[in-house]
Amino acid sequence: MSEAALKLETELAEALPLPVRPLSNVVVLPTKHAKPRMIFMPDFKKIGAALLPPLFVMLLALLLWQIFASSPTSGLPPPTTVIAESSDLILHPFFDHGGTDKGLGLHVFASLKRVALGYTLAAIVGIALGTLVGASQLFMRGLDPLFQILRTVPPLAWLPISLAAFKDGQPSAIFVIFITAIWPIIINTATGIRNIPDDYKNVARVIQLNPLQYFSKIMVPAAAPYIFTGLRIGIGLSWLAIVAAEMLIGGTGIGFFIWDAWNSSHISDIIVALFYVGIVGFVLDRLVSYVGSLVTHGMTVN
């Protein structure tokens, strides 16, 4: 029997209030759906659809890497060699044998401390300056040209200057993070402040908010999506800059570790460190993005 006939049969059965005896050998499908049960059932199809493609790509990349790095002339070790040579780094991220011989987790922790300090300073100063420039034409005219020139200076170009000024590696690294992260924060904050709709300003004027109330109740929340865009770009740049800065400063930190491994020709260690850098950078980006979505309640920059 064709599908159409089956459908007709089912419809007939639904339409008639009396129990209908199905003609010939047609099975009448139940017309009422079972009540949804309140038991948690993981949707394997969804999880599979989300996990399988990236997993497949990763395996493929590892496979290609293995093939191309296995030739005797290759300068880079294949994944199997990396795992064999650097297993202690992978398995024990927090060992400390004194001096600079530490686990990758501790090096990352040292880098994160620098980033946290420099980035926090950049966020505070950047939002303040951005608000000033966004709210006042006068400050905008005065400061914007300076910002536009300084923001194009590469992070590492600041390092010699800051070493000369601070005469010490630690504050210099923090300053490099600060000066790298601050520009997108300033510029996005200023854009956010300038883009506050006139309607909101008129509402504030009608209910006669004073400048302080206007700042906290209208300006900051209205500009928040833009501010968080700047903060997110800033954290990414900070993490880019810290690795380079630490290579030059030395002591501790993931950047120093990479440079040290290069000098000792531990290429496998470098590759493991790169994974650490990538994963930490990813987590930082998501963290700022998550905080942003909490603060702005899902409002986005259009």
Partner: peptide
């Protein structure tokens, strides 16, 4: 256009 504050 109503001009309600979207974050409140």
């Amino acid at each position: 256009n109503h001009s309600l504050l979207p974050w409140l």
